[in-house]
Amino acid sequence: MFELRLEQGSLLKKVMEAIKDLVNDANFDCSATGFSMQAMDSSHVALVALLLRSEGFEHYRCDRNISMGINLANMAKILKCAGNDDIVTVKADDGTDSVTFMFESPTQDKISDFELKLMDIDSEHLGIPEAEYDAIVRMPSAEFARICKDLSSIGDTVVISVTKEGVKFSTRGDIGTANIVCRQNTSVDKPEEATIIEMKEMVSLTFALRYMNSFAKATPLASQVTISLSSDLPVVVEYKIAEMGYIRFYLAPKIEE
């Protein structure tokens, strides 16, 4: 059997809100390592990889590896029924075709359980190679979300360029152009407000803003976002999930023909 218990149930709610519009169905893999998921959007332009390590849960039991096929919109519907302070337990017995979500209020005076039917999903697992990135930008996640939102009111694509000057986000559309430059800034009171740019090589890549805005739905999960860029690879937009793992979004670039 498989069982996990998470006192900070709001975290699972946030994870679902971050991915439910990007991916329709996905296999959630449960192993001794933890609870993980990898899935592409329907057009295979973006990939999301989620890992919640077993040590991060208050209770985690996985007798044997299982893969649970889940419709994310339906899982999000169920998790919406959990209170923000609720303790969440997820349970699946071997050989059954459903998974149970149990929500306990902090004072234990309300206990709900929801059973979600599992589905057979033909998903392709992709091997993501370890890569040395040309540039890695760490910045406040809210700032990144704001930039993507602002630029999408002007254009459909964003050019992200990293140079010695900083990281530049540019777009163009019918009404004109926009450029937003963020410089490295480590002289802030709080580390979560810092912008740190590690550059090995200058890099400039073009991406669809629609996807960036979708990734930014993970903003409530982490105060900082890490953007890793290489000229011949998909960008990685990573949100760390406190002490537990991460949600990583990979986005294939737009390439000049």
Partner: peptide, 14 residues
Amino acid sequence: HPKQSTITSFFTKL
């Protein structure tokens, strides 16, 4: 116009 590439052209299926 630049053309949208796909994830599967970068990462291989396992």
